[in-house]
Amino acid sequence: MHKSYPSDLTPEQGELLEFLLPAAKRRGRPRTDLLLILNAIFYVLCEGCTWRGLPGDFPPWQTVYTYFRNWRKDGTWLAIHDQLYQWSRSDIDRPLSPSELIIDSQSVKTATMVHEDVGYDGAKKVKGRKRHLAVDTLGLSVRVLVTQASVPEREGGKQLLKRIHDMGQRVSRVHTIWVDGGYDGLPFFKWAIDTLRWVILVVLRPTEAKGFVLLRKRWKVERTFGWWNWCRRLSKDYEALVQTSETFLYLAMIRIMVRRLA
Rank of each mutant, 00 (worst) to 15 (best):
P6N: 13
V242G: 02
P98K: 04
T176Q: 04
S235W: 11
E47A: 12
V64R: 00
F189C: 05
L20F: 12
Y43E: 04
D180M: 04
D74P: 09
T207W: 09
Q169H: 12
L140R: 15
G75Q: 10
D33P: 07
E208H: 10
W61K: 01
L214M: 15
K3I: 06
G14A: 14
L241G: 00
L54W: 03
S172L: 13
R233D: 13
R223F: 01
V118C: 10
T244Q: 02
R26I: 12
V202L: 10
S150H: 09
L36I: 05
K210C: 01
N70H: 14
V108W: 00
A252V: 10
V174A: 05
T66V: 01
Y183E: 07
I256T: 09
G157Q: 00
F58S: 03
L241A: 11
R69K: 05
W178C: 11
F225N: 11
T63R: 09
S99M: 03
R205I: 00
L9D: 00
K217A: 06
M167Y: 04
T112V: 08
G226P: 09
I193K: 15
S172E: 15
H115V: 13
Y65A: 02
M1E: 13
Y65H: 08
H2V: 11
R260C: 14
A111Y: 02
P22N: 04
K162I: 12
K127L: 14
V258P: 09
D237Q: 08
V146L: 11
F212S: 14
A24Q: 14
Y5C: 11
L160D: 04
P59R: 08
T63L: 06
I177Q: 07
E222N: 06
